[in-house]
Design a protein around this nucleic acid. Sequence first.
DNA 1: TACAAAACTTAGGAAAGGCAGA
DNA 2: TCTGCCTTTCCTAAGTTTTGTA
Length: 559
Amino acid sequence: MGGGTEFHIEWEEERYPEGIKWKFLEHKGPVFAPPYEPLPENVKFYYDGKVMKLSTKAEEVATFFAKMLDHEYTTKEIFRKNFFKDWRKEMTSEEKSTITNLSKCDFTHMSQYFKAQSEARKQMSKEEKQKIKEENERLLKEYGYCVMDNHKERIANFKIEPPGLFRGRGNHPKMGMLKRRIMPEDIIINCSKDSKIPSPPPGHKWKEVRHDNKVTWLVSWTENIQGSIKYIMLNPSSRIKGEKDWQKYETARRLKKCVDKIRNQYREDWKSKEMKVRQRAVALYFIDKLALRAGNEKEEGETADTVGCCSLRVEHIKLHPELDGQEYVVEFDFLGKDSIRYYNKVPVEKRVFKNLQLFMENKQPEDDLFDRLNTSILNKHLQDLMEGLTAKVFRTYNASITLQQQLKELTNPDDNIPAKILSYNRANRAVAILCNHQRAPPKTFEKSMMNLQSKIDAKKEQLADARRELKSAKADAKVRRDEKSKKIEEQLMKLEVQATDREENKQIALGTSKLNYLDPRISVAWCKKWGIPIEKIYNKTQREKFAWAIDMAEEDYEF
DNA sequence: TACAAAACTTAGGAAAGGCAGA
DNA sequence: TCTGCCTTTCCTAAGTTTTGTA
């Protein structure tokens, strides 16, 4: 792997044979969702204007809907249709014959009850809140840790997802469906043979107990919406996740060494006589230049209609031979992961442009742009170019190299700490923009900006006062007054930096790139170089996740 | 080799926590 | 001490890649 052999020995005390993830694994199993508590008698459900007492099962599902009443999606046709269909499955035959129209269902009383409940929770006394906190801590202590080989490790998600209504992101065809309650009989336990096997809740048994040390999960079950498997795995601070993370960045650093060659290669391939090779080369160019995701095919009607690079359709791009004074502009407009819109106008090389024209010839808008390509073909090719290379490595590589470059460019040695941190955030922001990590502007954004502005105004006023006092002060008081002004000046500057940062961050989410794409050693090195406390860049959780990097990187670290 | 299933990483929003100023 | 706001943590969906199977 290079670059960190010493570290390797220190952090991975034992080597494992190929594919073996652990030798010993012991845990307590999952925590199940609390059982359903029926509503008090005085909370009513109405059908067609008349009070109706629901069976426990039907009532439980009704409460899921009632809790979502304020959300826009309970008004959506698909959501309502899916919900009603699944709800009816839980009804008794009498309920089924009575309740035939969702629009005649009145959940408002139930909804009010839940609102009152959550209000009451907020108003709880200190002691009551403390009691709940202690109970959570007990649960964490008992179920939140496992032993993997010689380490006690934190488990990420030891609580089983409670039942509820499925809400996918974007325009999901399954929104509103009932996510059923997971029982011990659904659960597969994975642990080592010689460990203390977790016991199922009284009166229940596990679906299966297995001892598979070729995988890292502790618990799995199959969810009923997509039929996919869900897992309980370890926290990012664990050895097994940390090592994998480190390995990911080492792969990206290997790409750095051969990326020029790969770029030359795909540029050559734009001229290939084979259509398949040309498509592959243009797609790879997009993945590299624009940090697009690979874009696997998805089953139609099972998920929201989103795409990545290989699954782009003709309707997702527009070609402009000339636009705003630039030649050969490609306009991208599509929904990517989580139905986040990707919109970008990009000048490309003439050859790319001509190829795109060729790929689009005689096609309908809904046809695949790269009809001779998929992620498996692309990744196979990448594997030939470099061992371990896959499409997503380009995102990691380009994100990390961009951070490193931007930090070099933006950091001003004369700046104070808040200004340097602003530069760091701007470098981080450049990456988030590259990776299209967006967020909905916070609901109170405008207000919060205004609050901050009035703080700034007040501080300016204070500064003016201080300066006036300084002017009129007697010689012996000048020094003290001057110090006071300086202090206020600094505070003002800090506030102004904060305002700039917040404004620039309105629609950008920095967390995702920080957590998943940026080699933490770059940040650690930057902190060391400029004497910035690491706590200013990484919070506690992040420091735990990146413990390996904090331990390892010196100020001269180069990605 | 192709396809499906399994495993694992990446993602944004909601809820909870905690802290500063009233 | 309370309130309101920002930060952190939780939650779990939605991707990518790897593995298994015929």
